[in-house]
Amino acid sequence: MSTIIEVKNLAVSFHTYGGEVQAVRGVSFSVPRGSTVAIVGESGCGKSVTAKAMMQLLSCPPAEYKGGEILFNGEDILQKTERQMERIRGNEMGMIFQDPMTSLNPTLTIGRQITEGMMKHRAFNGKEAKEEAIQLLHLVGIPQPEQRFDQYPHEFSGGMRQRVMIAISLACQPELLIADEPTTALDVTIQAQILQLLKKLQEEMGTSILLITHDLGVVAETCDYVVVMYAGVVVESGTAEEIFANAQHPYTKGLLQSIPRLDQQRAQALRPIIGSPPDLMDPSPGCPFYARCEQAMRICKNHHPTLEHVNGEHYSSCWLRHPMAQVVR
């Protein structure tokens, strides 16, 4: 299976008044063609920055690409000019944003917002674009698409708006869809509908999906591969089954333990991961999870563990994997 996009050692920093924030510090992963890959992690771990970097959407300054490459169909996105990026954005890569309430322009009809990408990339005239857009609206499950075409975002509910967002991102049938927390702002029933819709569209159009989320429930439901990020680095990655059944990294284990379970005893409290993520203004040279890790060892403080092969496509970055670890303990 070929990969559609491969991120190699990506590093992104933000320049702020307080100093340089190293939001992403060497992230590598790849998305096999036709599959769904999830990037999981808590707020501020660099997921969204990674996603935006993949389309060169970060405004520089304050952002700065410090290194690495993003190979999309073999070509490095970070080397492309703005003009070249315009041809890729929306056309070969689509993006869905987190909050459908604020991600649509309130003063333009949704029809206009769906068709403008098509008219640019696919050279459609107004009539063709309208027909295509109505089909898309139908496809994403919006009833009465002909009437809805001329309506404004405020006339849609949150779930419907996210469907419109999906229609916009799919307008040019991109090969890769980046969904940046597409269900975070929606209530649970709508979340399930949107995820099903994405799954259905993926089957019909063969799109590869990169799903950014902090919701492991969403991951379990939809994804083939999982990349767990923490403090701007990848701590563990592998197939969804491996990650859920055989998590190696204490952070991944912590995440899994902090989800409420149906078969849990009532009296049993949830087990959160104590503490908060490290300051990325001045990251330590050691493992970023050191301060919160229950199994931290001396070596973790000053030496960053490398991403080690576990089995199959499963990798984990933790000193506990080291043969000496058992001896030390």
Binding site: K52, M55, L57, E82, M85, E86, R87, I88, R89, G90, N91, G94, M95, F97, Q98, D99, T102, S103, L104, N105, P106, T107, L108, Q113, E116, G117, K120, H121, M165, I168, S169, A171, C172
Partner: peptide, 26 residues
């Protein structure tokens, strides 16, 4: 700074289209 500016940019619209059609009117 609004989210829909990202949406417009992610569609592949050129900078002046984004500014004229999406930002100016709002």
């Amino acid at each position: 700074g609004q989210d829909y500016m990202y949406t417009a940019k992610a569609k592949g619209l050129s900078r002046h289209m984004v500014i004229l059609q999406h930002a100016f009117r709002n």
